[in-house]
């Protein structure tokens, strides 16, 4: 399923809404999650999962081709942990 198919499914269920509003709704959900994480926040959606930001410490990496050491700066990466309900549903529990 891709974004446009998700929008279509929700539009089909909500014939009283304009297609462009459904697009806006779906985009707002994803944009709000991304913006929250960009601000260092966590987004917890019980039953579905939680989006959080993890810190990766600075390290000395190596160029695998040349073997040369390179300094890799500290960075933050997005992380998703599946919620219990969804995890159970994936395993028919």
């Amino acid at each position: 399923m891709i974004r446009s198919e998700l929008i279509q499914k929700i539009a089909d269920e909500n014939p009283h809404l304009y297609q462009r509003d459904v697009e806006k709704i779906v985009n707002t959900v994803f944009d709000t999650i991304t913006e929250a994480m960009a601000a260092g926040h966590r987004v917890e959606l019980r039953g579905f999962g939680a989006f959080s930001v993890k810190k990766r410490d600075a390290r000395t990496g190596r160029n695998p081709r040349t073997g040369e050491s390179v300094d890799v700066e500290e960075k933050h990466v997005p992380f998703f942990k599946t919620g219990k309900l969804l995890r159970d549903r994936l395993n028919d529990e």
């Binding site: 509003d21 806006k24 709704i25 707002t28 959900v29 709000t32 999650i33 929250a36 601000a39 260092g40 926040h41 966590r42 987004v43 917890e44 959606l45 019980r46 930001v53």
Partner: peptide, 27 residues
């Protein structure tokens, strides 16, 4: 890094603000 946690309610609030649907419908 400020430790704030958003929930469904915050997403619904964003939809309400962006699209103008009621908070209930947004949720």
């Amino acid at each position: 890094m400020s430790e704030k946690t958003l929930t469904r309610m915050d997403l619904a609030e964003a939809v309400h603000a962006e699209v103008g649907l009621s908070r209930n419908d947004s949720a």
